[in-house]
Simulated assay, not measured.
Amino acid sequence: MTLTDLVKAFAPNGRLRASINTGNPILAAPTPDGSAKGVSVDLAQGFAQRLGVPLELVVFDTAAKSVDAVTQEQADIGFFAIDPRRGEGIHFTPPYVLIEGCYAVRNASPVTAMDQVDREGTRLVVGQGSAYDLLLSREIRRATLLRAPSSPAVVDYFIEHGADVAAGVKQQLEADAKRIGGLRLLPGHFMVIRQAMGCPRSRGEEAARFLAQYVEEMKASGFVTEALARHGIEGAAVAPAGNP
């Protein structure tokens, strides 16, 4: 595809609309003016510059809303955890960042290991429509899933409803444990969340390959590493080259 063809594919309205999820602190954070800042915003800006078009941020507070925006073509690109269900409507690039999904419990909880979570009577809180909600909905067999309205609301929902386990991004759980007190994370992680860029499947295979190439270049050049450092993000790893 020529650059003109790529611009038509990614920015049919003359601007690149990037769906940004501020519900994951690793990716982006809201700003006072209603916009956002973070690694995903930096990547969106870089891609818009590559296409030579202006960037428009479409900011959401949950992953589910961000996914819907791209699936329904209300946005041209987005930043998501790779998941087969989401992949029905979205072309994913290789991941650019790897994040751990972990469990948190009260200090007094008898649960000490991840293999003790999926048991009858256990109430496990997840963020509605998050990557770990999608995965745990497929894998949890005995515990009951409770869905908080968003990922940042998981721990508060967990406390309010007297649940047994909270699931989420490690960094969010650590911050909430420090904020609230009386909580601990279980050792290890139940999933590695592969954060990628994506575009609507309707934009075509060649456009998807161009976006994937962009992500690989941003990893290889050190751009993603520098963006994580610039925004003070710790505990997230840059995905290896070509990681599917």
Score class of each variant (00 low, 15 high):
2 T>D: 13
2 T>G: 15
4 T>C: 00
6 L>N: 15
8 K>G: 04
8 K>T: 09
11 A>C: 09
16 L>G: 13
21 N>C: 10
22 T>S: 08
25 P>F: 01
26 I>G: 12
28 A>L: 01
32 P>A: 10
33 D>G: 05
34 G>P: 09
41 V>C: 10
43 L>S: 11
43 L>P: 12
43 L>C: 06
49 Q>P: 01
51 L>I: 12
54 P>G: 13
55 L>G: 14
55 L>Y: 08
60 F>R: 10
73 E>N: 15
79 F>R: 04
87 G>E: 14
92 F>K: 14
96 Y>A: 08
96 Y>T: 08
102 C>P: 00
106 R>W: 04
106 R>Q: 12
110 P>N: 04
112 T>Q: 15
113 A>G: 06
115 D>S: 04
116 Q>M: 14
117 V>N: 03
128 Q>N: 10
135 L>I: 14
139 E>W: 01
159 I>A: 06
159 I>T: 05
172 Q>K: 03
176 D>T: 09
177 A>I: 03
177 A>P: 05
180 I>T: 07
182 G>M: 08
183 L>Y: 02
185 L>D: 02
185 L>S: 05
188 G>N: 10
189 H>L: 02
190 F>S: 14
193 I>A: 02
195 Q>R: 08
195 Q>V: 12
195 Q>G: 07
198 G>K: 01
198 G>F: 00
200 P>C: 03
201 R>V: 09
205 E>V: 13
206 E>F: 02
207 A>Q: 04
216 E>G: 10
218 M>R: 15
221 S>A: 14
222 G>C: 12
223 F>Y: 09
224 V>M: 04
237 A>P: 00
238 V>H: 00
239 A>R: 11
242 G>N: 11
